[in-house]
């Protein structure tokens, strides 16, 4: 019986994707349209387009910049967010300003940062990613800290937990579900900025390569780039979920129990 259920689940998961890919394959099989080359051609072009050299000089550096920028945003966002969340005065002082900076669409950071560092330096790209990613993390950290159960804080105080212990055992874990939610939003902004930060000036990188294909009308290659970028997006979200499930295992468990009750 369980084997049948498992089989059913596999069929349910794979059925639609298989149908869609097959439809794409068949619909474009004899395509002579310039923009929609046969999927077969795209698949065949994939390995010859994304060679070891491209991975080494375009794809991996892009991902590296994303990683560094994202890490900076995480540290800064959690640090400042926690500090602001803990102080009522600081919160009142910074709230309108933060509301404004959060509302600025992150891509406009690219030309602004380019004023300082030009378009091609790594610093400008990492800076763009970090500056764009920091707001959702910071604001969620503020909300997370502010939404802490007062009983928890009072208990911590009653037990005379020190500042540091209160922070690491009560405040940060308590705020972590919100921080993770912010980090997830930030990740998709980070991917967008990773691509956009490479689109101006003479650049190398994943985004720059794909646009290069488009400008030189190498359409099948461009499609492989779109697919690769899509796969990277999916891979990052799977990775994020794995990490999240570890970090928030206690929280998900708690929610499950609350729901069952």
């Amino acid at each position: 019986m369980t084997a049948r259920l498992a089989l059913r689940k596999v069929v349910m998961t794979l059925a639609l994707p298989v149908v869609l890919v097959a439809a794409w394959w068949i619909a474009t099989a004899d395509s002579t349209s310039f923009f929609w080359p046969p999927l077969e051609d795209i698949v065949r072009t994939f390995p010859e387009t994304w060679t070891a050299d491209r991975w080494l000089h375009d794809v991996l550096p892009s991902l590296g910049r994303l990683g560094i920028g994202y890490a900076v945003a995480l540290v800064a966002g959690i640090a400042f967010g926690t500090a602001i969340g803990l102080s009522k005065t600081l919160r009142a002082l910074t709230e309108p300003t933060l509301e404004f900076f959060r509302a600025v669409p992150p891509p406009v950071l690219v030309p602004v940062i380019a004023l300082f560092t030009g378009y091609t330096s790594s610093l400008s790209k990492v800076g763009t990613i970090a500056l764009g990613c920091v707001w959702p993390i910071l604001l969620n950290a503020v909300d997370g800290v502010r939404g802490l159960e007062p009983v928890l804080l009072d208990t911590a105080q009653t037990y005379r937990l020190g500042r540091w212990r209160r922070l690491t055992y009560v405040i940060l874990p308590g705020a972590s579900p919100r921080i993770v939610a912010g980090a997830r939003q930030a990740l998709s902004i980070g991917v967008i900025l990773m691509v956009i930060s490479e689109l101006f000036g003479a650049n190398r990188g994943l985004g720059a390569t794909i646009v290069q294909f488009q400008r030189s009308f190498a359409v099948p290659q461009m499609w492989t780039g779109i697919i690769l970028l899509g796969l990277i997006g999916v891979a990052l979200s799977v990775l994020f979920r794995l990490i999240e499930n570890r970090v928030l295992a206690w929280y998900h468990g708690q929610r499950e129990i609350e729901r069952g009750a």
Partner: peptide, 15 residues
């Protein structure tokens, strides 16, 4: 869902 929409920029430019 996680496919970044900017990946589609080259395509819409051509279209």
């Amino acid at each position: 869902r996680p496919i970044p929409s900017v990946a589609l920029i080259p395509l819409v430019v051509l279209l």
